[in-house]
């Protein structure tokens, strides 16, 4: 072992493997140890890094005559030495097989969807047509919060949720309803801090009322299966179920409190 590690070929292979482990796994798991977020690298970047490392290694083994000769020697031996017949045969068989496999792997049809960018929370319009009326979404508050009994509204919302929503969004509001696995995009989890907790109630109202068909372009390219509930529910029904969602998920809606200032763009 020690002998191999002193040989340029052995050293090169060691460095190569170490570099691969570092790039493939080190980058994913090491930064979190010191509290920095990380993620796996795309294969295109891994390939790019590995090629750079390989080129670097080749330069290293060949920039000195002695090292170069030593580096080539085992390969040369495998190719010509009569005693290395087995190794030679394995090599000559394995190399084309490897190439064949890589080629196959690259051209084989896959079900992977084309690369696309989907915005999960596309920006809402300023106003919508709701059942023939125009509703201004900007600054819109949930009218039920200032009217009637909160408990009654929650009770009503719960009833509506279990009649209409539970099949997809699930019992625990975690997006794990019975049908959820069949959809792309999957139904949202309301437990997630990234969903309704980030939105004003008016945005949630817009999403419920208009559903998948009302998503703007950037919400594509996959059609959300969410129905446009304005065809089935009344305005108060929707506001009630929204109250229920926030209550049950334990989030509070984003408010209009930080009223938009006068900056913004041209």
């Amino acid at each position: 072992m020690g002998k191999h590690l002193r040989h340029p070929l052995g050293q090169s292979v060691t460095v190569l493997v170490a570099a691969y482990l570092l790039i493939k796994f080190g980058i994913v798991y090491l930064p979190p140890l010191i509290g920095i977020a990380s993620a796996p690298l795309p294969s295109s970047v891994v390939l790019q890094y590995m090629i750079t490392v390989i080129v670097g290694l080749l330069l290293w083994v060949s920039d000195n005559e002695e090292r170069w000769a030593k580096f080539k020697q085992p390969m040369h031996r495998v190719m010509v030495d009569p005693e290395q017949k087995v190794a030679r045969a394995v090599l000559l068989l394995a190399t084309p097989l490897l190439v064949a496999f890589v080629t196959f792997d690259r051209v084989r049809p896959s079900v992977a969807a084309p690369v696309s960018f989907r915005s999960i929370h596309p920006a809402p319009p300023g106003q919508i047509d709701f059942q023939g009326r125009t509703l201004r979404l900007t600054g819109l508050e949930n009218p039920l919060r200032s009217r009637g009994s909160e408990d009654e509204h929650l009770e009503e919302g719960k009833r509506i949720y279990y009649q209409n929503c539970v099949a997809c969004h699930g019992d625990g509001l975690a997006g794990l309803g019975h049908y959820s696995q069949g959809f792309n995009p999957v139904p949202l989890s309301f437990q997630d801090v990234g969903t309704i907790a980030q939105l004003t109630e008016s945005v949630v109202f817009w999403r419920i009322a208009k559903g998948g068909p009302g998503l703007p372009n950037e919400g594509g390219p996959w059609n959300s299966a969410m129905p446009a509930w304005e065809d089935f529910l009344s305005e108060d029904d929707i506001w009630a179920v929204i109250m229920f969602l926030y209550e049950q998920a334990g989030h509070s809606p984003r408010t209009w409190g930080e009223e938009p200032g006068e900056e913004g763009g041209h």
Partner: peptide, 13 residues
């Protein structure tokens, strides 16, 4: 901006 497949983009967020 890295070239990545859909699954890889999802993994990177």
């Amino acid at each position: 901006t890295m070239i990545a497949s859909r699954a890889e983009i999802a993994a990177m967020g």
